[in-house]
Design a protein around this nucleic acid. Structure first.
Length: 781
DNA sequence: GATTTTTTGATTTTT
DNA sequence: TCAAAAAATC
């Protein structure tokens, strides 16, 4: 680039940087001017607005390398926070690779949570905790809340533990301790919410436990109330880097602002257009406000995209342009033009899945002059996970290998949590939550009543549940099977506890012993459900994972924060995942099905959050399109089964927002004659297939066909029109007897906009788009 | 205390 | 529709 740019970047570098400039910096040559500016502006606040596929991680890691290489900072002086372990791991790896062996790991590169755990263990006493506090998972949290609700004699129908957990979570995301919850919020929940929140926090303290939200909240409390501690860390963390800044919630934001408050050496990287986690507390406002929070900040825009073709970028830009309050970026690329974004409508969801399956097979073979493509390079991105089902069903029938990304994580599985609870109990017998979890797993004849007795005994004597249970047995408060089984369990726990740290028994052996002797393994061996073998397999894997740790305690400490799912069988597969799970990933070919109003954008988002919700959905669309490198295929269906009811669907409003010039509308093979019934439509009855065949030959259908052919679908606008208007509402009148593909015959009892309300003879009253209804006279039966 | 039946209600999810 | 949770029954 021009010498002007370079001198400019040089001027913005600090004296310290300049002094060290003698050291070679070959890595800078790999960067484009914008990336380079973001890397070289080491001092003061920097906001790096990094669009999709613009080399954000590269810039971030190079910045760290530059800090180290110029001796501006030592590894332990850099605080670098990410949201996921995966991101942290990747960054560590890339910094390590660029620096060579010379640099030992970066101790403060990690997720918000893992860094806060480290800090909180040092200062636990400042918030009345012991440094060996446990971190609750969602299960423990719910169990605890359920108890509190029951104890407070509150109707658990009006206050389900889940809801309460959600509310408390939201409050913690906003950095509100119980006494800080604003009156307006508190009263909105009967006042009982705050009371329960207070009790919950008290109980956590008694248990020496924290939940995920507490990790941040406690550290923030400490920073706010102990200047000396805050000062110490301000001196310590001289340079702060934040990844995915648009995803930070208020608590994280305040935490960062406190730490960066002194030196203001904070570099935040993010993309306001990719903020899709508002529903779990992320505040786009944080990134929009950055320049106000840190006056004089250097703002760098990374806009050169290295991922997608111009058509794909243009389509994405066209959609995201519908949002207000953007910081504004214009992505560009040097890539060759490539294919336009493809748009296609289908009759229903099954048809859509069938078509995508065939298209994937075609791409795999290589068609239309395109190179054969590996299944690993194709992905289907859906809005909601229930959409995956249609694709899984279809792929199973045609034998297409696929993988679902996301879903329950390894450490969230029941059997893993049970096993972990056993380990926790062995290491710390006072872990009441762990005891509750496993006391009757496997079944030991200790039901609600027996457990209640244990609780009462423990509380009366002010001891842990394990001790309470022992006391209860001494008093002969239990009899029969329950008593003997409980005795066995307690005896086992004592025995295993003594073996913790034993030189002759490794922690791995101990773990196996615990699982066997507690009869937990046996429980699954006797289980005949199809999941049982998989669960046993998972338990084996858990034991294997233990080998990587020094001892059980070490394992337990780390595992609560590491929740990713590593295991991956070999073989080429198509990926299926939600749009959320796709953030940060890229694929040469991407399918975006289900672009229908109500599904995407999701009705619930729009109902609950109005324009804000719609804008977040739009960002989701943007994220989806920008995952594609070469081919992006958007599709929608005219009919879809929603909660078991067939509904006619309107194409997504986002389809209208796609710029026409960058979209090619495909015609589904089945829709205009041919291809139906013959190939693999296995599920429908013969009769319905005959009916289908007849419908497509009916005068009504032909009329529609003719009409849509007058207006060839060369524009996305018209693709949408085709569905909405193909058969005008005006063609029908009240009381008219009509035929619908899925519902059969019925009479029109109402007309609303482009929808007809029809009383079907078999299916009852439904609202359907006029297009999918034919005058009954047109059906030649 | 376990098993079967009925009811309910249904995004997105990391740590 | 369909899975999970709650209620009812054994």
């Amino acid at each position: 680039m021009s010498s002007f740019d370079e001198s400019d970047a040089f001027e913005s570098a600090s004296l310290a940087t300049r002094a060290m400039a003698a050291r070679p910096t070959p890595y800078l040559d790999d960067l484009n001017p914008a990336q380079r500016e973001a890397v070289e502006a080491l001092e003061g606040p920097v906001l790096m607005l990094a669009g999709a596929g613009t080399g954000k991680t590269k810039a971030l890691t190079t910045r760290m390398v530059h800090l180290l290489n110029t001796n501006t900072a030592r590894p332990n002086e850099i605080l670098a926070v990410t949201f996921t372990n995966k991101a942290a791991r990747e960054m560590k790896m890339r910094v390590g690779r660029m620096m060579g062996e010379a640099v030992e790991g970066m101790p403060w590169l990690g997720t918000f949570h893992s860094i806060c755990v480290k800090l909180l263990r040092r200062h636990a006493e400042l918030v009345e905790l012991k440094s060996n506090f446990t971190i609750l998972d969602t299960d423990d949290q719910l169990r605890l809340l359920k108890q509190l609700v029951a104890a407070a004699n509150i109707d658990d129908k009006r206050w389900p533990a889940r809801m309460l957990a959600g509310i408390i979570d939201q409050w913690k995301n906003r950095a509100w301790t119980p006494d800080q919850v604003p009156a307006a919020e508190a009263s909105a929940y009967d006042g009982k919410g705050v009371a329960l929140y207070t009790q919950y926090q008290t109980r956590l303290r008694e248990l020496n436990a924290v939940d995920f939200g507490d990790l941040l909240l406690h550290m923030e409390t400490i920073f706010q109330t102990h200047d000396d501690v805050l000062e110490q860390y301000r001196r310590w963390f001289r340079y702060i880097l934040v990844d995915e800044y648009q995803d930070t919630n208020v608590a994280q934001y305040l935490w960062l602002r406190l730490l960066a408050g002194g030196h203001r050496n904070i570099c935040c990287v993010g993309d306001d257009d990719q903020s899709i986690y508002g529903w779990r507390g992320a505040e786009v406002g944080n990134i929009l406000r950055f320049e106000k929070d840190f006056p004089g900040a250097t703002v760098v825009r990374l806009e050169q995209n290295y991922r997608s073709t111009p058509h794909i970028l243009a389509a994405a830009s066209g959609v995201i342009a519908g949002n207000k309050d953007r910081l504004g970026k214009e992505l560009w690329t040097q890539a060759e033009e490539g294919e336009k974004v493809r748009l296609i409508g289908h009759w229903d969801g099954d048809e859509e899945a069938r078509w995508v399956g065939e298209e994937i097979e075609a791409m795999q073979r290589g068609t239309r002059g395109m190179q054969p493509m590996s299944l690993d390079h194709m992905a289907i991105l859906v809005r909601a996970s229930h959409q995956m089902r249609a694709f899984e069903d279809r792929f199973l029938t045609i034998g297409m290998p696929y993988r679902v990304i996301g879903g329950p994580r390894f450490y969230e599985r029941m059997e893993i949590r049970d096993a972990m609870a056993y380990f926790r109990l062995v290491v710390s017998p006072a872990d009441d939550l762990a005891f509750e979890r496993v006391v009757n797993t496997p079944k030991r004849g200790l039901g609600d009543k027996a457990q209640q007795k244990i609780q009462v005994t423990a509380r009366q004597n002010g001891v842990s549940l394990v001790e309470g249970a022992a006391l209860l047995l001494e008093e002969k408060g239990l009899t029969g099977k329950g008593a003997s089984e409980l005795g066995k369990l307690l005896e086992g726990l004592r025995r295993w506890g003594r073996l913790v740290g034993d030189k002759d028994v490794s922690h791995v052996e101990l773990a196996e012993m615990v699982l066997d002797e507690s009869d937990y393994t046996e429980m699954w061996q006797l289980d005949k459900t199809p999941e049982a073998p998989g669960r046993l397999e998972n338990l084996k894997e858990l034991v294997k994972a233990l080998e990587g740790f020094e001892n059980l305690q070490g394992f337990l400490e780390h595992v609560s924060l590491i929740m990713d799912n590593e295991s991956e069988e070999a073989g080429e597969k198509v990926s299926i995942m939600t749009l959320h799970a796709a953030k940060g990933l890229e694929f040469p070919a991407v399918f975006l099905p289900g672009w229908e109003d109500g599904l995407f954008p999701s009705q619930r988002s729009m109902d609950e959050s109005g324009v804000k919700g719609l804008e977040e959905e739009r960002r989701l669309a943007y994220v989806g399109i920008t995952r594609a490198e070469e081919v992006c295929t958007i599709s929608f269906a005219g009919n879809r089964r929603v909660y078991g009811q067939w509904q006619s669907q309107m194409p997504s409003r986002f389809i209208d927002e796609l710029p026409e010039d960058h979209v090619e509308v495909l015609t589904p093979p089945g829709l205009y004659g041919g291809g139906y019934g013959a190939a693999g439509g296995g599920l429908g009855s013969i009769e319905s297939r005959v009916a289908e065949a007849n419908v497509y030959n009916s005068p009504g259908w032909k009329r529609m066909q003719a009409r849509s052919q007058q207006r060839p679908m060369s524009q996305p606008q018209e693709a949408r029109d085709m569905v909405i208007d193909a058969q005008a509402v005006s063609a029908h009148e009240m009381g008219e007897r009509v035929f619908h593909q899925k519902f059969g015959y019925g009479a029109i009892i109402g007309i609303e906009g482009d929808k007809l309300e029809i009383d079907f003879e078999k299916a009852g009253v439904k609202k359907v788009v006029a297009r999918f209804v034919t005058g009954a006279d047109d059906i030649p039966f």
